[in-house]
């Protein structure tokens, strides 16, 4: 995990999962994302870093159309997942979001039991035919969320009663329960203590086996620890995108260099 020999990481090309081309996002008149083009790989952890307010969350929320819920948000350009335009009029955002899961900055479990938190997604998508199926799904999701051993004896207790780190892992488990292909995480550790952060980071590393993970973080150390690819945003512009090792050791852009050496942000 704390492997800092960044340059020696595997750099073999993976399949492209998400393609963004010339994406602009406006909040009313404010231009939050300016002409961003990026290709995000499958089975890879991609980190979005940059000073706060640079548009990382905004861009992330474009990937599962959560920005649709903001009235004043307007998006231009194309975003393709597996080659399909997700802003095509025929696309139902509800279907999209089952395929692109999301974990938020602040853990936000439903005020229901742990079991119901996980089972909610599979239920509304009809993933389980029987109660036993559902039990299976819940167990599998909690195991993937590295939470099973801690909660298996108290599945009926409220999810809101867990500790912050456990809640966040519950939210990750909830997101993977619907069998998504992409997992978006918006600063998932910023509300957690260092131990919980380490647990979640370890989990993210494991999730890479099955998903394309995109994580927004303001911590460069975290980006260095968990990601294979890093994108550096500044004032709504994608300044630099590449192998995490290269970005951190030999940044091409002076702004990236200033940021990672602590001069901006």
């Amino acid at each position: 995990m704390n492997d800092m020999r960044l340059t020696e990481r595997a750099t073999d090309m993976k399949e492209i999962k998400i393609t963004a081309e010339g994406v602009d996002v406006f909040y009313g008149d404010a231009h939050a994302i300016k002409d961003v083009s990026v290709e995000i790989e499958d089975k890879t952890v991609t980190a979005f870093i940059g000073p706060s307010g640079c548009g990382k969350s905004t861009f992330l929320r474009c990937l599962n159309r959560m920005n649709d819920t903001i009235d004043i948000a307007r998006i231009e350009g194309d975003i393709l997942i597996d080659g399909e335009d997700i802003y095509h009029p025929k696309v139902d955002p509800v279907q999209l979001r089952a395929k692109v899961g999301m974990v938020f900055q602040k853990p936000n479990p439903f005020p229901k039991s742990i079991y119901d938190n996980i089972a909610y997604g599979p239920r509304i998508h009809g993933l389980a035919k029987t109660k036993a199926d559902l039990d299976d799904i819940v167990e599998r999701a909690l195991r993937r969320g590295a939470l099973w051993d801690e909660v298996k004896d108290r599945l009926q207790e409220p999810g809101t009663g867990l500790s912050g780190g456990q809640q966040q892992r519950l939210c990750i488990a909830r997101a993977v329960a619907t069998e998504p292909e992409v997992l978006l995480m918006d600063e998932p550790c910023s509300a957690l203590d260092p131990i919980a952060t380490a647990q979640v980071e370890e989990l993210i590393d494991e999730l890479r086996q099955n998903y394309s993970v995109v994580i927004v973080t303001h911590s460069m150390q975290q980006a260095a620890r968990v990601s294979q690819k890093t994108a550096f945003f500044h004032l709504g512009i994608l300044v630099e995108y590449g192998e995490t090792g290269e970005i951190f050791t030999t940044p091409k852009d002076s702004r990236t260099e200033s940021y990672i050496t602590g001069r901006i942000g």
């Binding site: 599962n64 959560m66 979001r97 899961g101 938020f104 909610y120 909830r174 997101a175």
Partner: peptide, 15 residues
């Protein structure tokens, strides 16, 4: 009701 609850539901694909 905190908006985070709505986000949570929408993010797992609820309408």
């Amino acid at each position: 009701v905190p908006p985070s609850i709505r986000d949570a539901a929408l993010a797992v694909g609820a309408s």
